[in-house]
Computed example of a mutant assay.
Amino acid sequence: MLTLLHTSPVHVPVFDALGARHHPGLELRHLVHEDLLAKARSDGPAAMDSALGAVLTEAVADGATAVLCTCSTIGGAAQAHTARLGVPVLRVDRPMAAAAVAAAPERGTVRIAVVVALFSTLAPTTDLIREEAAAAGRRVDIRTVSAEGAWERFEDGDRDGYLDIVARTVDGITGADAVVLAQASMADAADRTGTVLPVLSSPAPGLRAAAAAAQGAERSAEDV
């Protein structure tokens, strides 16, 4: 069973739809803990690590063979619990970051524009891209672009307004090899853009990686 840890309930139908379309037969369980993001935003990711660890421990006790954290702000902190838990804990944005690093020819610097609506996502996302670039032996030039006013729309429940602001922000970007949508909630904005640049989002590739990890863990358990 793959357990998904969300910090907003808006992600549940998104990942359910992706699972049904691309991973039929994979059992998904959703946990929504908005308090984890609130704590991370107010006091920093380290402040909610104990609560995060308890949530992950309970998920494994309830049968998770892998956990996917869909929140970019706390994804790195969640992944750090992998060794302790003995099951893969993945962050949804890692495959997206790897794809961004590979978005330009092997020679030269990869120019990546990171669109953010929530400031707490900024450092975890850019750090992850640099980590993936180092692993690939690539140089990166990361530029961050704020989708001003978007998060307020998100918090007000105005999904269309949120996505429209993100899309307009993307359409204003030039001089990049790829655009990264830093938050999973931004994914549908890619369909509203008119840019010719590659626009990368995290839900589909993140779920694909997590599904493979969960299924691999299940096969390993059966072989024991």
Rank of each mutant, 00 (worst) to 15 (best):
R192E: 12
P13T: 11
I74N: 01
G19H: 02
L163T: 05
D158S: 11
G161I: 04
S185T: 13
V224D: 14
A133I: 01
T169Y: 08
H22Q: 13
F154E: 11
A77M: 12
F15M: 14
T193R: 01
G206C: 02
V145Y: 06
R21T: 13
S120Q: 05
P9V: 09
P24R: 12
L85S: 08
I142R: 00
P95K: 02
H6Y: 06
I74W: 05
V145W: 05
A77N: 07
T126G: 01
A20I: 05
A135C: 02
T121S: 15
V114Y: 02
H23P: 04
A217E: 15
A133K: 00
G149V: 07
C71L: 07
T7R: 00
A54K: 14
P124N: 10
T169A: 04
P105Q: 12
D160V: 09
T73A: 13
R84I: 01
I173R: 03
A117I: 06
T144W: 04
A102W: 00
A83P: 02
V196D: 15
V14Y: 01
G63T: 07
A135F: 04
D43I: 02
E27H: 11
L26F: 03
R139K: 10
A66S: 07
L207T: 02
M1C: 06
A97H: 01
E148F: 09
P105M: 12
A213Y: 05
L122S: 06
M96I: 07
I142Q: 03
P13H: 08
F154I: 08
Q215V: 11
E131K: 03
D49S: 15
K39Y: 00
S72Q: 07
A47V: 06
G175Y: 09
L36S: 04
L181C: 13
F154H: 11
T195W: 10
K39A: 15
D141P: 03
E58F: 00
A104M: 08
S120R: 02
A178C: 09
C69N: 14
A221H: 13
V14M: 13
R41K: 12
R192Y: 08
S202M: 09
T70A: 12
T73I: 01
M96C: 08
D127N: 13
V32Y: 05
P198L: 12
P45L: 12
D164Q: 15
R153K: 10
T3M: 11
D156H: 14
R159M: 13
R143W: 06
W151G: 00
R159N: 08
D49R: 15
A64D: 09
V114W: 00
T174Q: 14
A184R: 00
S220W: 12
A54W: 04
R168Q: 14
T65K: 05
A210D: 12
G53I: 10
S220C: 04
E148Q: 13
V116N: 06
G175R: 04
L56C: 03
L118I: 15
A54N: 10
Y162H: 11
H81W: 15
P9L: 09
A17H: 05
V110Q: 06
L197G: 02
E218Y: 03
A83Q: 14
R130W: 11
V110H: 05
G19K: 01
G175F: 10
V60P: 09
L128S: 00
M48D: 02
E34H: 06
G206F: 03
T144N: 09
A211P: 06
A217M: 14
D158M: 12
D141T: 08
A167T: 04
